[in-house]
């Protein structure tokens, strides 16, 4: 059964320096509150996995939490670069960041394989791309039945998965609505999982085919209202697209970024 913890307790108990941490949410339900708590607790040397690093990893990388990033698209969607990610890759600030990059299809398959308990994922992918030349985790295998050449990547099996969701009931069962992304797969692929939710309710109100994670498949649940902002939670609040645009200016230089981090993360504690 999932244990109900405060966000501060959950991060402290389940995320250790050096862990491999996958914080997912495909544009939607991005666990910003948890990311900020990880920054406040000054976790270090994390290997961060995420299909779309987004602002949350830009902030964590800029704050010095990460030693390695595994990803498939590292931009500010519709706006441009992630400047903290670029600064780490291009200039090694605040520390050198190792990167390993995939395509979305490969990462999606790798999460799914992780959830399925398999060591690898197979896909019809990376044909003609230079990505296999710079990522030694991309291999090609021959289908034993047809002889077709297919791409293979190792499954994703993180130490910890962190996601945000709309609701949990009082037993710790969680419902995810809208763009469900890779939320279910990352939780099932990980050794431990932390789910932050908008609210804890008596009845999930889930339809029969809803995306539900049972309490016994989750390690910890923490209530974190508005925990996905400036991303969004369908049914609760919209994506703050104006902030995504503003982030470009905030993150562009180290001083404005650090001032933002101090004012909005370090001095703000858990809401």
């Amino acid at each position: 059964m999932a244990e109900f913890l405060s966000l501060q307790e959950a991060v402290s108990k389940h995320i250790n320096n050096g862990d491999t941490v996958a914080m997912e949410g495909f544009t939607h339900l991005i666990p910003f509150a948890a990311g900020h708590e990880i920054i406040r607790q000054e976790k270090r040397d994390l290997t961060l996995i995420r299909m779309t690093p987004d602002l949350v990893y830009d902030q964590m990388i800029g704050a010095g939490c990460a030693k390695k990033l595994i990803f498939s698209w590292g931009g500010n969607p519709g706006v441009g670069s992630l400047h903290r990610l670029r600064d780490a890759v291009e200039k090694g600030w605040p520390n050198k960041l190792e990167i390993l990059e995939h395509s979305h299809a490969a990462m999606a398959c790798a999460y799914e394989a992780g959830a399925a308990g398999l060591p690898l994922a197979v896909l019809r992918g990376y044909v003609g791309s230079d990505l296999p030349k710079v990522n030694d985790q991309i291999k090609f295998i021959e289908c034993p039945f047809t002889g077709e050449r297919l791409a293979a990547v190792p499954s994703v099996r993180p130490d910890v998965a962190v996601i945000h969701a709309q609701r949990a009931d009082r037993n710790g069962n969680v419902v995810i609505e809208g763009i469900v992304g890779i939320q279910k797969e990352v939780v099932l692929a990980a050794k431990r999982s932390l789910v932050t939710v908008e609210e804890i309710v008596d009845d999930l109100g889930a339809s029969v085919n809803a995306c539900v994670l049972p309490s016994w498949a989750i390690t910890a649940v923490a209530e974190a209202p508005k925990g996905a902002k400036p991303s969004y939670a369908l049914g609760y609040y919209d994506r703050d697209n104006a902030f995504y645009k503003d982030w470009d200016g905030i993150a562009r230089d180290r001083e404005t970024f650090q001032a933002w981090l101090n004012d909005n993360v370090f001095e703000k504690g858990v809401a």
């Binding site: 544009t27 969607p77 706006v79 299809a105 999606a108 799914e112 019809r124 469900v180 890779i182 697209n241």
Partner: peptide, 27 residues
């Protein structure tokens, strides 16, 4: 603005998971 704005989901016929998107629908 992003490929996952709420507007896309709310005006869609249906929304599937990302692995399903790439595996079933694209591949």
């Amino acid at each position: 603005l992003s490929i996952g704005d709420g507007e896309l989901c709310e005006s869609a016929l249906t929304t599937v998971s990302v692995p399903e998107m790439f595996r079933y629908w694209l591949q």
